[in-house]
């Protein structure tokens, strides 16, 4: 190769150049700078260690499932599928039905999403599309900060601020004008399903909004320009050019938020009222799967009682896993290189 490059000048050029080159080549052959083969054991240790790390995650999940299944066996044999459709939870007579908890978990979470999703998307749209530059950083940071506050703090805040507010102002107003729907009936305690839904909504907003913000930022600028050039207003541009392209990712964010709402324990336990009943009114107290485990585990005396609580835990675990798998699928379908990205 070197001879080739020197081809033209080397006809008239000095002989030594060629000689030196030859010397370099032979010396390289006799003593290679980098040894091929040789010591491979550090690499083996490394790969085994990493394999162990990876497997440990699987082992932990497997152990949790085994524990939940074996410990709930007693209750499963006693009640079977009835466990999930019966609504009396009576530790005195050893009768357990988990329906009020399943109901409470699902209703409080769905209520949280209904309140949180529009707000979260609004926050994301404002931050990515309309916010003055100086406000962008602080606002995004504050939204993230909401996710970092411990849930017991949310619970305290809810008890001292949110619940009195609901009791004094919001619930009387709702009962007066929306009481006919049946959703806002009964005495306004403050504490109850509505309070739980609102506090969950506040905790879910940062998750949904940061996910939404990320997918919106990933939408290529050309998409926005394409819509604008067709004569769209700013809102039309955001709707057609941005939200529409980001919808799968936004859905993923919503499901991650739902996962958080389903599993949240502390803040909900502090405000939901903890009564295992199914009531249509959102003013009524309720109970969730996570709350009942946290509240009653330490005082569960009988074997069947304990086993029933573990079965509630198993149910919650399964619901959360299903939701997360769904979210992974959605997020994957976004990042896999949807046309939106291929265009960018």
């Amino acid at each position: 190769m070197a001879n080739h490059a020197l081809g033209a000048p080397h006809v008239s050029g000095p002989q030594p150049t060629e000689k030196t080159l030859v010397v370099v080549e032979t010396s390289a052959q006799s003593a290679p700078l980098v040894q091929v083969g040789g010591n491979e054991w550090p690499d083996r240790v490394f790969s085994w260690t990493m394999l162990l790390c990876g497997l440990s995650v699987l082992a932990i999940v497997a152990l949790i499932i085994v524990e939940l299944v074996t410990k709930s066996n007693l209750s499963w044999h006693a009640f079977g599928w009835r466990f999930f459709v019966q609504s009396d939870w009576d530790p005195v007579n050893d009768q357990y039905g988990a329906l009020p908890f399943v109901y409470g978990t699902i209703v409080s979470s769905v209520l949280a999403l209904v309140l949180a999703v529009p707000l979260a998307i609004g926050v994301a749209v404002f931050i990515t599309e309309m916010c003055p530059r100086w406000l962008k950083g602080p606002l995004a940071f504050t939204t993230e900060l909401l996710a970092a506050i411990p849930s017991v703090i949310y619970g305290l805040w809810a008890i001292f601020v949110l619940v009195p507010l609901l009791r004094e102002y919001v619930q009387p107003w709702l009962a007066k004008y929306w009481g006919w729907t049946g959703l806002f009936e009964g005495p306004p305690y403050g504490i109850g399903m509505l309070a739980a839904g609102i506090i969950l909504a506040i905790m879910v907003v940062p998750i949904v909004s940061s996910m939404t913000r990320e997918v919106m930022t990933a939408v290529p600028q050309q998409q926005r320009e394409a819509v604008l050039a067709l004569g769209a207003t700013r809102w039309e541009m955001i709707r057609v050019g941005v939200l529409r392209n980001a919808r799968a990712g936004i859905l993923g964010g919503i499901i991650l938020g739902l996962g958080r709402a389903l599993g949240e324990t502390m803040a909900v336990t502090m405000v939901i009222g903890n009564r295992p009943e199914i009531a249509k009114s959102l003013f009524a107290p309720g109970y969730t799967m996570a709350s009942v485990i946290a509240n009653e585990f330490s005082e569960a005396t009988g074997d069947v009682y304990l086993s029933a609580l573990v079965e509630v835990g198993l149910a919650l675990f399964l619901v959360t896993i299903i939701v997360n798998i769904l979210a992974q699928f959605l997020v994957w379908s976004v990042t896999r290189g949807t046309p939106a990205r291929a265009n960018g």
């Binding site: 998409q223 394409a226 050039a229 004569g231 529409r244 392209n245 265009n343």
Partner: peptide
């Protein structure tokens, strides 16, 4: 600006069809 853009078509350097439509 909106009414002007409605009467002037524009084609960009990179093809940018709407992928979700």
């Amino acid at each position: 600006a909106v009414s002007i853009r409605r009467r002037i078509g524009m084609v960009f350097q990179k093809p940018n069809p709407f992928p979700t439509m």
